[in-house]
């Protein structure tokens, strides 16, 4: 039933708008051992917009996000079925190199996880392992640019050699974003990036997401519906492993088509 609903939803909400699509998922099922966590999800991630995944705890939104850069490969017993394409290439195809995929699809986690290295080395990490900088000067330029884009440069430019773990929680999370954008990805996945932060740090991250929009395709998982409404243009509502509804954020929050979406958004459960 969901595939059918989705097909309707997709045609309904995208009618009249031409979008560049970065990633396409069709009929994705994810299993953890015998348990099915994602049931037949189909979705499109647009290139120039922010897509928010919302839903109650355990609905599978984080699991689905992790299938988009194959981070579920690191979970033993996890199995992914279906078809996920990045610019038309099947990312689960045997010819797809997971290292290159993750360089193109970056990720920011729920809890800030800077490496116990200096701020500079944190940002330079991805650039080093992918060999993207040919000289020290180029590396410095990449680090500076990434920190500037992540809105952290002014706060840390005088102490690039301090440990990344010594920063505040909000700064650490922006450092992780800088680290992700340093390898110049096409897509950035954010898994509840503000859930461990205070309101001021959250506001800064949200502002940053606004600024990054257009340069990267962004998919963000959030528990906070106001946040979804504030930062995203497209919203997907997950429930019990199903994609219940997917459409323009403004429409979803004012005029949901599905009763379950309406109940969730108005706080009846979740």
């Amino acid at each position: 039933m969901n595939a059918q609903n989705f097909a309707d939803a997709a045609t309904d909400s995208t009618a009249g708008t031409e979008r560049d699509i970065k990633m396409v998922a069709r009929d994705v099922n994810v299993y953890y051992g015998p348990k099915q966590a994602i049931k037949g999800v189909s979705i499109e991630i647009p290139t120039d917009e922010v897509t928010a995944f919302i839903g109650p705890s355990g609905c599978g939104k984080s699991t689905f996000l992790r299938t988009l850069n194959r981070m579920n490969d690191t979970v033993s017993g996890a199995r992914v079925e279906g078809d996920i394409r990045l610019d038309g290439e099947n990312i689960y195809d045997s010819s797809m190199d997971v290292v290159q995929l993750r360089a193109r699809v970056g990720m920011v986690f729920q809890k800030p996880n800077p490496f116990p290295k200096s701020i500079f080395e944190n940002v330079a990490y991805g650039t080093r392992i992918h060999g993207l900088a040919s000289s020290r000067g180029e590396m410095e330029q990449i680090v500076e640019q990434s920190l500037k884009r992540a809105g952290l440069w002014d706060e840390v430019k005088d102490r690039l050699n301090d440990s990344g773990t010594a920063l505040s929680g909000g700064q650490q999370q922006r450092l992780c974003i800088a680290r992700a954008i340093a390898v110049d990805p096409e897509v950035i996945l954010m898994d509840e990036p503000c859930s461990a932060l205070d309101p001021i740090a959250t506001a800064k991250i949200e502002e940053l997401i606004h600024e990054l929009r257009g340069r990267y395709a962004i998919a963000i998982v959030t528990h906070n519906m106001q946040q979804a409404a504030r930062v995203s243009q497209r919203t997907a509502f997950f429930h019990l492993g199903h994609l219940v509804e997917y459409g323009d954020t403004s429409e979803m929050f004012t005029n949901p088509r599905e009763q379950r979406t309406k109940d969730y958004i108005t706080g009846r459960y979740g």
């Binding site: 970056g106 996880n113 800077p114 990490y125 991805g126 390898v183």
Partner: peptide
């Protein structure tokens, strides 16, 4: 060493051995 550290490195496109050499062992 927290799993998040390992995930962070793998999500950057580091291989398992790069993750071990550059993140896990130093930490």
């Amino acid at each position: 060493v927290p799993q998040s550290m390992r995930d962070g490195s793998l999500a950057m496109g580091a291989t398992t051995s790069e993750t071990i050499r550059k993140v896990l062992v130093p930490a």
